[in-house]
Design a protein around this nucleic acid. Sequence first.
DNA 1: CAAGATACATAGGAATATTATATAAATGTA
DNA 2: TACATTTATATAATATTCCTATGTATCTTG
Lengths: 162, 162
Amino acid sequence: MDLSQPATDLLEIVALVIRGVSDNRDLSLTAVAALGSLDRRGGQRITTLAAAEGVSQPSMTQLIQRLEQRGLVERTSDPSDGRVALVSLTAEGRAALAARRQRNAKRIAELLAGLPEDDVRALADALAAVLPGIRARVAGDARPLAEPPPASPAPRSQSVAP
Amino acid sequence: MDLSQPATDLLEIVALVIRGVSDNRDLSLTAVAALGSLDRRGGQRITTLAAAEGVSQPSMTQLIQRLEQRGLVERTSDPSDGRVALVSLTAEGRAALAARRQRNAKRIAELLAGLPEDDVRALADALAAVLPGIRARVAGDARPLAEPPPASPAPRSQSVAP
DNA sequence: CAAGATACATAGGAATATTATATAAATGTA
DNA sequence: TACATTTATATAATATTCCTATGTATCTTG
């Protein structure tokens, strides 16, 4: 089965949604990812979060400091290991995450509402079918799909993106 | 028809693909979007590009300057209007865009290859069906889904990134 | 032609990322 | 126990990319 066309299509939809629909005003993509990880998996240490989101440890330290200043996360120390900083969501952080998810879902729902109902139903079924597998492959272990960094000093860029 | 579940699913897949699969090393999300717009619609002026990608005009000016330095775009002046700078892809820019697309499509194809073939086929069909409509709604006119900026001086954050 | 509108460029600052390095706590070993 | 090493995090210096505010050159219009 040829996967190049669906791969290209999926990529384009991802780009369209990120650029045109997703709400990235108050929280960066990395911030949302970190908050989401804390929400799904509970309190974690800085290093774990950094590895999970694919950023360096200092970046995650700084991100957590900013999120802490905004009251979205809190830090506690691990009684069994004085070095680690355990980060967890505050109630406010949970609320902010839920609100953002709701805004984004609302926008995407508006987007889908303009399309033929049969198409949307087919998409909904297909998404529900593949999501667990994709979730397992991408988020499960240490990002098995990302190539190792190039040997030469890697040129960098922004985020993701946005 | 309830759209909240497919909306949430689509959002999660978008996040997973952006974080775990997409190649954002050498070109930012905005850069890729601008190059793609130039590729699809041909030469455009700075202001048009800025509006299409949802960034400010100075940001687009700077982005085009960077891309010009890297040889990916070139600028020509409009003979009928001395103010405008017409931006177009160079052959190198077109090649870079194609190479990046191919890398990303390859990764996503690897991702999809691990899933049940029926599911992938259903997803492929669904994506192909909805993509034109989504493309029209998001990229077509001036992003009808984005809310107007808040009245208070908006807190900002990063790009999208990656 | 003067006044305003339009297209782009520049300046200054903020947010987010990086690498390199410092600090503190835990661990292993003589 | 003492000391070196490893581990977890923090800090410093710097780079990229975005923004707002403003400047400059070029049209357009009365």
